[in-house]
Design a protein around this nucleic acid. Structure first.
Lengths: 202, 202
DNA sequence: GACCATAGCTGCACTCAGTGCAGATTTGCA
DNA sequence: TGCAAATCTGCACTGAGTGCAGCTATGGTC
Protein backbone atom coordinates (compact mmCIF):
# COMPACT_ATOMS: atom_id res chain seq x y z
CA UNK A 1 0.00 0.00 0.00
CA UNK A 2 2.95 2.27 0.59
CA UNK A 3 4.05 2.11 -3.02
CA UNK A 4 0.95 3.32 -4.82
CA UNK A 5 0.49 6.25 -2.45
CA UNK A 6 0.92 9.62 -4.04
CA UNK A 7 1.52 12.66 -1.88
CA UNK A 8 -2.10 13.52 -2.44
CA UNK A 9 -3.26 10.14 -1.16
CA UNK A 10 -0.98 10.21 1.85
CA UNK A 11 -2.15 13.65 2.81
CA UNK A 12 -5.71 12.54 2.42
CA UNK A 13 -5.12 9.49 4.60
CA UNK A 14 -3.52 11.66 7.25
CA UNK A 15 -6.46 14.03 7.28
CA UNK A 16 -8.80 11.10 7.59
CA UNK A 17 -6.93 9.78 10.59
CA UNK A 18 -6.80 13.24 12.09
CA UNK A 19 -10.57 13.41 11.83
CA UNK A 20 -11.05 10.09 13.60
CA UNK A 21 -8.57 11.08 16.27
CA UNK A 22 -10.17 14.48 16.81
CA UNK A 23 -13.59 12.89 16.98
CA UNK A 24 -12.36 10.35 19.52
CA UNK A 25 -11.04 13.06 21.80
CA UNK A 26 -14.14 15.20 21.53
CA UNK A 27 -16.54 12.27 21.89
CA UNK A 28 -14.73 11.17 25.03
CA UNK A 29 -14.78 14.64 26.50
CA UNK A 30 -18.21 15.92 25.50
CA UNK A 31 -20.28 12.92 24.38
CA UNK A 32 -21.70 12.07 20.97
CA UNK A 33 -24.68 14.36 20.67
CA UNK A 34 -22.83 17.27 22.20
CA UNK A 35 -20.08 17.11 19.60
CA UNK A 36 -20.94 18.74 16.29
CA UNK A 37 -19.36 18.01 12.96
CA UNK A 38 -18.17 21.60 12.89
CA UNK A 39 -16.29 20.99 16.15
CA UNK A 40 -14.60 17.90 14.76
CA UNK A 41 -13.65 19.56 11.49
CA UNK A 42 -12.24 22.55 13.34
CA UNK A 43 -10.19 20.29 15.63
CA UNK A 44 -8.78 18.51 12.59
CA UNK A 45 -8.15 21.87 10.96
CA UNK A 46 -10.31 21.49 7.89
CA UNK A 47 -13.42 23.32 6.77
CA UNK A 48 -16.78 22.00 7.88
CA UNK A 49 -17.80 21.46 4.31
CA UNK A 50 -14.74 19.35 3.64
CA UNK A 51 -15.66 16.89 6.37
CA UNK A 52 -18.29 15.44 4.10
CA UNK A 53 -15.75 14.50 1.46
CA UNK A 54 -14.17 12.18 4.05
CA UNK A 55 -17.19 10.78 5.88
CA UNK A 56 -20.78 10.79 4.77
CA UNK A 57 -22.11 11.35 8.27
CA UNK A 58 -21.12 11.64 11.88
CA UNK A 59 -21.79 7.96 12.55
CA UNK A 60 -19.24 6.83 9.99
CA UNK A 61 -16.48 8.19 12.18
CA UNK A 62 -17.08 5.31 14.55
CA UNK A 63 -16.67 2.62 11.87
CA UNK A 64 -13.60 3.70 9.96
CA UNK A 65 -12.47 0.28 8.75
CA UNK A 66 -15.57 -1.84 8.74
CA UNK A 67 -14.69 -3.29 5.36
CA UNK A 68 -11.26 -4.53 6.41
CA UNK A 69 -12.93 -7.07 8.65
CA UNK A 70 -15.22 -8.27 5.94
CA UNK A 71 -12.22 -8.73 3.71
CA UNK A 72 -10.51 -10.78 6.40
CA UNK A 73 -13.57 -13.00 6.73
CA UNK A 74 -13.82 -13.45 2.98
CA UNK A 75 -10.17 -14.49 2.86
CA UNK A 76 -10.79 -17.00 5.60
CA UNK A 77 -13.56 -18.52 3.50
CA UNK A 78 -11.27 -18.67 0.49
CA UNK A 79 -8.84 -20.68 2.63
CA UNK A 80 -11.34 -23.46 2.87
CA UNK A 81 -9.75 -26.84 3.57
CA UNK A 82 -10.99 -29.87 1.65
CA UNK A 83 -12.32 -31.59 4.77
CA UNK A 84 -14.28 -28.60 6.10
CA UNK A 85 -18.03 -28.20 5.88
CA UNK A 86 -19.86 -24.88 5.49
CA UNK A 87 -20.43 -24.46 9.21
CA UNK A 88 -16.76 -24.99 10.04
CA UNK A 89 -15.59 -22.51 7.43
CA UNK A 90 -18.13 -19.95 8.54
CA UNK A 91 -17.09 -20.38 12.15
CA UNK A 92 -13.48 -19.81 11.21
CA UNK A 93 -14.40 -16.68 9.26
CA UNK A 94 -16.40 -15.26 12.15
CA UNK A 95 -13.63 -16.02 14.60
CA UNK A 96 -11.31 -14.05 12.37
CA UNK A 97 -13.56 -11.03 12.84
CA UNK A 98 -14.16 -11.59 16.52
CA UNK A 99 -10.50 -11.93 17.38
CA UNK A 100 -8.93 -8.83 15.96
CA UNK A 101 -12.25 -7.07 15.75
CA UNK A 102 -11.78 -5.14 18.89
CA UNK A 103 -8.68 -3.26 18.04
CA UNK A 104 -8.02 -4.14 21.62
CA UNK A 105 -7.51 -1.19 23.82
CA UNK A 106 -8.49 1.23 21.11
CA UNK A 107 -10.29 4.16 22.63
CA UNK A 108 -12.49 4.28 19.57
CA UNK A 109 -13.63 0.70 20.11
CA UNK A 110 -14.75 1.50 23.64
CA UNK A 111 -16.63 4.56 22.42
CA UNK A 112 -18.20 2.52 19.70
CA UNK A 113 -19.53 -0.06 22.12
CA UNK A 114 -20.93 2.61 24.37
CA UNK A 115 -22.56 4.62 21.61
CA UNK A 116 -23.99 1.58 19.88
CA UNK A 117 -25.73 0.87 23.15
CA UNK A 118 -26.80 4.42 23.93
CA UNK A 119 -27.29 6.37 20.70
CA UNK A 120 -30.07 5.14 18.40
CA UNK A 121 -28.55 6.59 15.25
CA UNK A 122 -25.27 4.80 15.93
CA UNK A 123 -27.01 1.54 16.76
CA UNK A 124 -28.96 1.76 13.52
CA UNK A 125 -25.83 2.30 11.52
CA UNK A 126 -24.03 -0.55 13.27
CA UNK A 127 -26.86 -2.92 12.47
CA UNK A 128 -26.83 -1.87 8.86
CA UNK A 129 -23.11 -2.44 8.54
CA UNK A 130 -23.48 -5.83 10.16
CA UNK A 131 -26.33 -6.80 7.87
CA UNK A 132 -24.38 -5.86 4.81
CA UNK A 133 -21.26 -7.69 5.98
CA UNK A 134 -23.37 -10.73 6.71
CA UNK A 135 -24.76 -10.66 3.20
CA UNK A 136 -21.33 -10.52 1.63
CA UNK A 137 -20.04 -13.34 3.76
CA UNK A 138 -23.04 -15.44 2.84
CA UNK A 139 -22.48 -14.83 -0.85
CA UNK A 140 -18.89 -15.96 -0.61
CA UNK A 141 -19.87 -18.96 1.45
CA UNK A 142 -22.37 -20.03 -1.16
CA UNK A 143 -19.71 -19.66 -3.81
CA UNK A 144 -17.31 -21.81 -1.79
CA UNK A 145 -19.85 -24.61 -1.42
CA UNK A 146 -21.77 -24.66 -4.69
CA UNK A 147 -22.94 -28.24 -4.12
CA UNK A 148 -24.05 -27.97 -0.50
CA UNK A 149 -25.50 -24.44 -0.37
CA UNK A 150 -27.62 -22.18 -2.51
CA UNK A 151 -27.85 -18.43 -1.95
CA UNK A 152 -30.80 -18.71 0.37
CA UNK A 153 -29.37 -21.52 2.43
CA UNK A 154 -26.06 -19.75 2.82
CA UNK A 155 -27.83 -16.58 3.92
CA UNK A 156 -29.89 -18.53 6.44
CA UNK A 157 -26.86 -20.28 7.89
CA UNK A 158 -24.86 -17.08 8.14
CA UNK A 159 -27.83 -15.21 9.57
CA UNK A 160 -28.30 -17.89 12.19
CA UNK A 161 -24.68 -17.78 13.33
CA UNK A 162 -24.35 -14.02 13.33
CA UNK A 163 -27.79 -13.54 14.86
CA UNK A 164 -27.08 -15.98 17.66
CA UNK A 165 -23.69 -14.53 18.51
CA UNK A 166 -24.88 -10.94 18.33
CA UNK A 167 -27.90 -11.56 20.51
CA UNK A 168 -25.89 -13.46 23.11
CA UNK A 169 -23.24 -10.78 23.10
CA UNK A 170 -25.79 -8.09 23.63
CA UNK A 171 -27.02 -9.74 26.81
CA UNK A 172 -23.51 -10.27 28.10
CA UNK A 173 -22.40 -6.72 27.39
CA UNK A 174 -25.51 -5.28 29.00
CA UNK A 175 -24.23 -6.42 32.38
CA UNK A 176 -20.77 -5.06 31.73
CA UNK A 177 -20.19 -1.53 32.92
CA UNK A 178 -16.53 -1.36 31.93
CA UNK A 179 -16.86 -1.42 28.18
CA UNK A 180 -13.35 -0.05 27.94
CA UNK A 181 -11.78 -3.14 29.48
CA UNK A 182 -10.55 -5.06 26.43
CA UNK A 183 -10.07 -8.33 28.29
CA UNK A 184 -13.61 -8.33 29.62
CA UNK A 185 -15.07 -7.52 26.21
CA UNK A 186 -12.96 -10.15 24.56
CA UNK A 187 -14.10 -12.69 27.12
CA UNK A 188 -17.71 -11.77 26.47
CA UNK A 189 -17.23 -12.23 22.73
CA UNK A 190 -15.74 -15.67 23.30
CA UNK A 191 -18.46 -16.73 25.66
CA UNK A 192 -21.16 -15.46 23.33
CA UNK A 193 -19.69 -17.38 20.42
CA UNK A 194 -19.38 -20.41 22.62
CA UNK A 195 -22.92 -20.39 23.94
CA UNK A 196 -24.47 -19.38 20.65
CA UNK A 197 -22.82 -22.05 18.57
CA UNK A 198 -22.93 -24.93 21.04
CA UNK A 199 -25.96 -26.40 19.25
CA UNK A 200 -23.95 -26.72 16.03
CA UNK A 201 -20.59 -27.95 17.21
CA UNK A 202 -19.59 -29.86 20.31
CA UNK B 1 -60.65 -0.35 23.83
CA UNK B 2 -63.81 1.45 22.90
CA UNK B 3 -64.87 1.88 26.52
CA UNK B 4 -61.94 3.76 28.02
CA UNK B 5 -61.73 6.19 25.10
CA UNK B 6 -62.50 9.76 25.95
CA UNK B 7 -63.35 12.18 23.19
CA UNK B 8 -59.83 13.51 23.54
CA UNK B 9 -58.32 10.07 23.04
CA UNK B 10 -60.53 9.26 20.09
CA UNK B 11 -59.68 12.52 18.40
CA UNK B 12 -56.02 11.86 19.00
CA UNK B 13 -56.28 8.36 17.54
CA UNK B 14 -58.04 9.75 14.50
CA UNK B 15 -55.34 12.33 13.93
CA UNK B 16 -52.71 9.65 14.23
CA UNK B 17 -54.42 7.54 11.60
CA UNK B 18 -54.86 10.58 9.40
CA UNK B 19 -51.11 11.15 9.57
CA UNK B 20 -50.31 7.60 8.54
CA UNK B 21 -52.86 7.77 5.75
CA UNK B 22 -51.57 11.12 4.49
CA UNK B 23 -48.02 9.88 4.62
CA UNK B 24 -48.98 6.75 2.69
CA UNK B 25 -50.52 8.78 -0.09
CA UNK B 26 -47.64 11.23 -0.32
CA UNK B 27 -44.98 8.53 -0.09
CA UNK B 28 -46.65 6.62 -2.90
CA UNK B 29 -46.93 9.70 -5.06
CA UNK B 30 -43.63 11.49 -4.40
CA UNK B 31 -41.31 9.00 -2.68
CA UNK B 32 -39.83 9.04 0.79
CA UNK B 33 -37.09 11.63 0.58
CA UNK B 34 -39.21 13.94 -1.51
CA UNK B 35 -41.96 14.07 1.09
CA UNK B 36 -41.30 16.45 3.97
CA UNK B 37 -42.81 16.28 7.40
CA UNK B 38 -44.33 19.67 6.72
CA UNK B 39 -46.12 18.18 3.69
CA UNK B 40 -47.51 15.32 5.72
CA UNK B 41 -48.64 17.52 8.57
CA UNK B 42 -50.34 19.90 6.15
CA UNK B 43 -52.12 17.02 4.42
CA UNK B 44 -53.38 15.78 7.78
CA UNK B 45 -54.36 19.35 8.67
CA UNK B 46 -52.20 19.83 11.71
CA UNK B 47 -49.28 22.13 12.40
CA UNK B 48 -45.82 20.95 11.54
CA UNK B 49 -44.78 21.29 15.15
CA UNK B 50 -47.63 19.08 16.27
CA UNK B 51 -46.44 16.20 14.11
CA UNK B 52 -43.71 15.53 16.62
CA UNK B 53 -46.17 14.91 19.42
CA UNK B 54 -47.51 11.97 17.40
CA UNK B 55 -44.35 10.52 15.89
CA UNK B 56 -40.78 11.09 16.92
CA UNK B 57 -39.49 11.04 13.37
CA UNK B 58 -40.48 10.47 9.78
CA UNK B 59 -39.43 6.81 9.89
CA UNK B 60 -41.87 6.00 12.67
CA UNK B 61 -44.75 6.60 10.28
CA UNK B 62 -43.83 3.35 8.56
CA UNK B 63 -44.01 1.27 11.75
CA UNK B 64 -47.19 2.42 13.42
CA UNK B 65 -47.97 -0.77 15.32
CA UNK B 66 -44.71 -2.53 15.73
CA UNK B 67 -45.45 -3.36 19.36
CA UNK B 68 -48.74 -5.11 18.62
CA UNK B 69 -46.80 -7.88 16.91
CA UNK B 70 -44.44 -8.27 19.80
CA UNK B 71 -47.40 -8.56 22.11
CA UNK B 72 -48.87 -11.28 19.89
CA UNK B 73 -45.62 -13.20 20.01
CA UNK B 74 -45.38 -12.84 23.76
CA UNK B 75 -48.89 -14.19 24.12
CA UNK B 76 -47.99 -17.13 21.95
CA UNK B 77 -45.13 -17.91 24.30
CA UNK B 78 -47.42 -17.67 27.29
CA UNK B 79 -49.64 -20.28 25.65
CA UNK B 80 -46.87 -22.81 25.96
CA UNK B 81 -48.11 -26.38 25.99
CA UNK B 82 -46.59 -28.83 28.47
CA UNK B 83 -45.09 -31.01 25.75
CA UNK B 84 -43.43 -28.19 23.82
CA UNK B 85 -39.74 -27.38 23.94
CA UNK B 86 -38.23 -23.90 23.60
CA UNK B 87 -37.66 -24.19 19.85
CA UNK B 88 -41.25 -25.25 19.20
CA UNK B 89 -42.68 -22.41 21.25
CA UNK B 90 -40.40 -19.89 19.61
CA UNK B 91 -41.35 -21.16 16.19
CA UNK B 92 -45.02 -20.76 17.03
CA UNK B 93 -44.41 -17.22 18.27
CA UNK B 94 -42.53 -16.24 15.14
CA UNK B 95 -45.19 -17.75 12.93
CA UNK B 96 -47.70 -15.60 14.74
CA UNK B 97 -45.77 -12.56 13.63
CA UNK B 98 -45.07 -13.80 10.13
CA UNK B 99 -48.68 -14.66 9.43
CA UNK B 100 -50.56 -11.50 10.20
CA UNK B 101 -47.42 -9.43 9.99
CA UNK B 102 -48.05 -8.26 6.52
CA UNK B 103 -51.30 -6.52 7.02
CA UNK B 104 -51.80 -8.17 3.72
CA UNK B 105 -52.63 -5.83 0.93
CA UNK B 106 -51.92 -2.82 3.08
CA UNK B 107 -50.39 -0.10 0.98
CA UNK B 108 -48.25 0.86 3.92
CA UNK B 109 -46.76 -2.64 4.12
CA UNK B 110 -45.70 -2.47 0.49
CA UNK B 111 -44.14 0.93 1.01
CA UNK B 112 -42.38 -0.33 4.09
CA UNK B 113 -40.79 -3.21 2.23
CA UNK B 114 -39.64 -0.94 -0.54
CA UNK B 115 -38.26 1.74 1.73
CA UNK B 116 -36.53 -0.71 4.03
CA UNK B 117 -34.71 -1.92 0.97
CA UNK B 118 -33.99 1.48 -0.56
CA UNK B 119 -33.70 4.10 2.19
CA UNK B 120 -30.85 3.66 4.68
CA UNK B 121 -32.54 5.58 7.46
CA UNK B 122 -35.62 3.37 7.22
CA UNK B 123 -33.55 0.21 7.07
CA UNK B 124 -31.68 1.28 10.16
CA UNK B 125 -34.86 1.92 12.04
CA UNK B 126 -36.36 -1.40 10.95
CA UNK B 127 -33.32 -3.27 12.19
CA UNK B 128 -33.48 -1.49 15.49
CA UNK B 129 -37.12 -2.35 15.96
CA UNK B 130 -36.43 -5.95 15.09
CA UNK B 131 -33.52 -6.16 17.49
CA UNK B 132 -35.58 -4.80 20.32
CA UNK B 133 -38.48 -7.11 19.58
CA UNK B 134 -36.08 -10.03 19.46
CA UNK B 135 -34.75 -9.11 22.87
CA UNK B 136 -38.19 -8.98 24.42
CA UNK B 137 -39.18 -12.29 22.92
CA UNK B 138 -35.98 -13.86 24.21
CA UNK B 139 -36.65 -12.55 27.71
CA UNK B 140 -40.11 -14.05 27.74
CA UNK B 141 -38.84 -17.30 26.34
CA UNK B 142 -36.26 -17.56 29.08
CA UNK B 143 -38.98 -16.92 31.63
CA UNK B 144 -41.14 -19.65 30.13
CA UNK B 145 -38.33 -22.21 30.30
CA UNK B 146 -36.46 -21.42 33.49
CA UNK B 147 -34.94 -24.88 33.66
CA UNK B 148 -33.82 -25.26 30.06
CA UNK B 149 -32.72 -21.72 29.19
CA UNK B 150 -30.86 -18.86 30.80
CA UNK B 151 -30.99 -15.31 29.47
CA UNK B 152 -27.98 -15.76 27.23
CA UNK B 153 -29.12 -19.07 25.82
CA UNK B 154 -32.58 -17.74 25.09
CA UNK B 155 -31.11 -14.71 23.35
CA UNK B 156 -28.85 -16.92 21.26
CA UNK B 157 -31.68 -19.22 20.25
CA UNK B 158 -33.98 -16.36 19.36
CA UNK B 159 -31.20 -14.54 17.54
CA UNK B 160 -30.43 -17.64 15.52
CA UNK B 161 -34.04 -18.12 14.42
CA UNK B 162 -34.72 -14.49 13.66
CA UNK B 163 -31.35 -14.01 12.02
CA UNK B 164 -31.77 -17.03 9.79
CA UNK B 165 -35.27 -16.12 8.71
CA UNK B 166 -34.45 -12.46 8.13
CA UNK B 167 -31.36 -13.22 6.08
CA UNK B 168 -33.14 -15.81 3.96
CA UNK B 169 -36.05 -13.45 3.44
CA UNK B 170 -33.76 -10.69 2.34
CA UNK B 171 -32.34 -12.84 -0.45
CA UNK B 172 -35.77 -13.97 -1.56
CA UNK B 173 -37.23 -10.48 -1.57
CA UNK B 174 -34.26 -9.10 -3.48
CA UNK B 175 -35.38 -11.03 -6.54
CA UNK B 176 -38.97 -9.93 -6.14
CA UNK B 177 -39.91 -6.80 -8.02
CA UNK B 178 -43.55 -6.77 -7.07
CA UNK B 179 -43.26 -6.03 -3.38
CA UNK B 180 -46.90 -5.00 -3.37
CA UNK B 181 -48.13 -8.47 -4.22
CA UNK B 182 -49.21 -9.85 -0.84
CA UNK B 183 -49.33 -13.45 -1.98
CA UNK B 184 -45.79 -13.38 -3.32
CA UNK B 185 -44.46 -11.74 -0.18
CA UNK B 186 -46.32 -14.18 2.01
CA UNK B 187 -44.90 -17.07 0.01
CA UNK B 188 -41.40 -15.67 0.41
CA UNK B 189 -41.87 -15.41 4.16
CA UNK B 190 -43.01 -19.01 4.34
CA UNK B 191 -40.17 -20.25 2.22
CA UNK B 192 -37.63 -18.27 4.21
CA UNK B 193 -38.94 -19.70 7.47
CA UNK B 194 -38.92 -23.13 5.95
CA UNK B 195 -35.40 -23.04 4.62
CA UNK B 196 -33.99 -21.23 7.60
CA UNK B 197 -35.40 -23.58 10.21
CA UNK B 198 -35.01 -26.85 8.41
CA UNK B 199 -31.85 -27.63 10.40
CA UNK B 200 -33.82 -27.48 13.65
CA UNK B 201 -37.02 -29.31 12.84
CA UNK B 202 -37.72 -32.08 10.38
C1' DG C 1 -74.51 26.23 32.67
C1' DA C 2 -70.30 28.56 34.39
C1' DC C 3 -65.41 27.69 35.92
C1' DC C 4 -60.99 26.13 36.13
C1' DA C 5 -56.98 23.08 35.82
C1' DT C 6 -54.89 20.50 32.51
C1' DA C 7 -53.74 18.42 28.09
C1' DG C 8 -53.06 19.38 23.58
C1' DC C 9 -52.05 22.58 19.51
C1' DT C 10 -49.41 25.93 17.27
C1' DG C 11 -46.08 29.49 15.71
C1' DC C 12 -41.53 31.24 16.38
C1' DA C 13 -36.86 31.07 16.77
C1' DC C 14 -33.17 28.17 16.95
C1' DT C 15 -29.40 24.37 16.20
C1' DC C 16 -27.48 21.05 13.45
C1' DA C 17 -26.93 17.64 9.55
C1' DG C 18 -26.30 17.49 5.00
C1' DT C 19 -26.15 19.24 -0.19
C1' DG C 20 -25.22 22.07 -4.45
C1' DC C 21 -22.51 25.35 -6.39
C1' DA C 22 -18.78 28.24 -7.66
C1' DG C 23 -14.37 30.02 -6.94
C1' DA C 24 -9.79 29.55 -4.97
C1' DT C 25 -5.88 26.40 -4.03
C1' DT C 26 -2.98 22.55 -4.51
C1' DT C 27 -1.06 18.51 -6.80
C1' DG C 28 0.52 15.51 -10.61
C1' DC C 29 2.61 15.50 -14.66
C1' DA C 30 4.47 17.03 -18.95
C1' DT D 1 7.35 26.45 -15.78
C1' DG D 2 2.61 25.63 -16.97
C1' DC D 3 -1.66 23.36 -17.29
C1' DA D 4 -5.49 20.10 -16.18
C1' DA D 5 -7.60 17.75 -12.59
C1' DA D 6 -8.47 16.95 -7.89
C1' DT D 7 -9.30 18.98 -3.65
C1' DC D 8 -10.67 22.52 -0.37
C1' DT D 9 -13.66 25.90 1.21
C1' DG D 10 -17.27 29.45 1.96
C1' DC D 11 -21.96 30.55 1.03
C1' DA D 12 -26.56 29.84 0.70
C1' DC D 13 -30.05 26.65 1.24
C1' DT D 14 -33.36 22.72 2.74
C1' DG D 15 -35.19 19.88 6.13
C1' DA D 16 -35.25 17.37 10.71
C1' DG D 17 -35.92 18.11 15.23
C1' DT D 18 -36.30 20.91 19.91
C1' DG D 19 -37.52 24.46 23.51
C1' DC D 20 -40.57 27.83 24.70
C1' DA D 21 -44.54 30.60 25.35
C1' DG D 22 -49.09 31.52 24.41
C1' DC D 23 -53.50 29.94 22.82
C1' DT D 24 -57.48 26.60 22.63
C1' DA D 25 -60.22 22.75 23.73
C1' DT D 26 -61.53 19.19 27.04
C1' DG D 27 -63.08 16.97 31.38
C1' DG D 28 -64.63 17.29 35.63
C1' DT D 29 -66.58 20.32 39.41
C1' DC D 30 -69.55 23.41 41.72
Amino acid sequence: MLPAMSLRDRKRARTREALVEAATVLFERDGYDETTIADIAAAAEIGTRTFFSYFASKEELLFPESDARVRAAVEAIADRQPDEGPAEVLLRALHKIGDDSDDLGSRLAALRLRFVRDIPAVRGRALQIQTQAQGEIARHLAAAFPDELDEVGAAALTGAFVGAITAALQVLLADLDRLDDPAAVQAAVRKATDVALRPWFR
